[in-house]
Simulated assay, not measured.
Amino acid sequence: MRTTRSAAAAAVFAAVLLAGACSSSTKSTAAAGAPAQTTSSAAAPVTVTSTVTSAPGSASGSSSGGGQSTAVPSSAGSSPATAPGSASGSACQASNLKVTIIHGTDADPDPSKTNDPATVSFQNTGQSTCTMQGHAQVDLVSTSGMDWPLEDQSGTTPKLTLAPGTSALASLYVLSHTDGAGTNGFQVKSAVIIPPDTKTPTTVPWPWTWALEDQSAATHPGTFIGAVNQTASS
């Protein structure tokens, strides 16, 4: 009986040892598996990092910051690209302009006609292209020293580009005086002309001897200056 009980006890003891060994093995296996789970969860940032790296054109910072900083220089850089077109000619300076009233058979106004135009020329004598836009300021000076600032003609004022040697032209409309009409004549001696975009006057001799109708005090005089609106090559 003792032998039988001893054998049974030994069997129970062996079973307990075997169960303990299995439990220890299971815990060790679970503990060993933990790093694998940690490694698996740590792989997520690698995927995110890959997404940031593929963000457009940025070697620094986050994907949102990189995208914005890339777009701003691109937009700002497009403006200078159009600048050379507008800067191809700055406004013509008086020091580089030759101002004349064109005189000749074809250019002379007909004193028998109403508002027949003369032509004022602004030639670019500089070395660079320049632009001109608007009306010249014209003051007629009489032989008696009277000054008559002319009115501007309303209408469009195109922006003209003048290469070196090219002239801009404006029409100067004149209303001739008729003798015996009971009105006064304005005998012009010279014209003081200031080109558009400048403040420098040029005094030009008046090339004709017949008088204009004196409308220096009129609201809508028949003698006035038109816009600079065409060009001519020398």
Score class of each variant (00 low, 15 high):
1 M>W: 12
2 R>P: 09
6 S>N: 11
7 A>R: 15
10 A>E: 10
13 F>I: 12
14 A>K: 07
17 L>Q: 15
19 A>I: 06
22 C>K: 13
31 A>Y: 08
35 P>F: 00
41 S>D: 09
45 P>D: 02
46 V>P: 03
46 V>G: 14
53 T>Y: 10
54 S>I: 07
55 A>G: 13
57 G>K: 11
58 S>N: 12
66 G>M: 06
67 G>E: 14
67 G>D: 11
70 T>I: 10
73 P>G: 02
73 P>S: 03
76 A>R: 11
77 G>K: 12
78 S>L: 11
80 P>W: 04
80 P>A: 09
80 P>M: 05
81 A>G: 14
82 T>K: 08
83 A>E: 11
83 A>K: 09
86 S>Q: 12
86 S>D: 10
87 A>D: 13
87 A>M: 11
94 A>D: 02
94 A>Y: 02
95 S>N: 11
95 S>D: 07
97 L>P: 00
99 V>Y: 01
100 T>Y: 00
101 I>V: 14
103 H>E: 15
103 H>K: 15
106 D>V: 07
110 D>R: 05
113 K>P: 02
124 N>R: 01
125 T>W: 00
125 T>P: 02
127 Q>N: 15
128 S>T: 12
135 H>Y: 07
138 V>N: 00
139 D>N: 13
143 T>W: 06
149 P>A: 04
151 E>Q: 11
153 Q>G: 15
155 G>L: 01
172 L>I: 03
174 V>W: 05
176 S>V: 03
176 S>G: 07
177 H>W: 15
179 D>E: 11
179 D>H: 07
181 A>N: 13
182 G>D: 05
185 G>R: 03
188 V>R: 03
188 V>W: 01
192 V>S: 02
200 T>F: 05
202 T>P: 02
204 V>W: 04
205 P>E: 01
207 P>C: 04
211 A>D: 15
214 D>W: 03
215 Q>T: 11
219 T>A: 14
222 G>H: 02
226 G>K: 01
229 N>E: 05
232 A>F: 03
